[in-house]
């Protein structure tokens, strides 16, 4: 019972404090892995990979997954609902006072301060995922090629996932990974 309450509290907190979309929830999930050991950072990296290739917003997928790993299907349900709940309440309040919200100076100043912080947090996640997922010279090579491709032009996220999945498959076949 206690684990469900704890899950609810942690995921509500994620929903309330993550700014910048689904990937912005990741620093909180890594922090949970370090603090409570409900799952390992390596498991979390796998969950993120799975979440990226399954339907739905990545943030919802990964919350469902982390909840499921911690406490089964009820855990998944609680984590997903709790992560959405703050957004739900805030969006409805904001919809009601839309004009005031947009022009409020303090709200604007707070957003001005926390957006770069969200960006900094996500950069720390990038470093984390990189060290979890890119461990071989071959991996670094694939990473660099994809990175250069991303600089050339804007592409669909599925493009990168598709290429890396195929490269993984082929490399696995020739026992290179």
């Amino acid at each position: 019972m206690l684990i469900y309450l704890h899950l609810c509290f942690e995921f509500f907190r994620i929903g309330l404090f993550s700014f910048g979309g689904g990937y912005a929830t990741l620093p909180f999930l890594y922090h949970i892995a370090d603090t409570y050991h409900w799952y390992t950072p390596q498991q979390l990296s796998d969950m993120i990979a799975v979440s990226s290739i399954t339907p739905g917003p990545v943030g919802v997928n990964v919350a469902t997954f982390a909840g499921f790993s911690t406490a089964g299907i009820l855990g998944a349900l609680i984590a997903t609902t709790s992560v959405i709940l703050p957004s739900y309440v805030l969006v409805i309040i904001i919809s009601k006072l839309l004009e005031k919200f947009k022009s409020n100076k303090k709200v604007q100043a707070a957003i001005y301060g926390l957006k770069p912080a969200g960006c900094g947090l996500l950069s720390a996640v990038a470093l984390n995922i990189f060290s979890d997922n890119v461990k071989s010279l071959f991996g670094v090579g694939l990473f660099l090629i994809l990175l250069i491709m991303s600089f050339q032009q804007k592409r669909d996220p599925l493009f990168y996932l598709g290429i890396s999945a195929v490269v993984g498959l082929v490399a696995g076949y020739f026992h290179m990974v």
């Binding site: 990226s52 990038a126 994809l146």
Partner: peptide, 10 residues
């Protein structure tokens, strides 16, 4: 492979 691709997405 997807693990490497995800780093790019982040």
């Amino acid at each position: 492979g997807v693990g490497v691709g995800v780093v790019i997405l982040v």
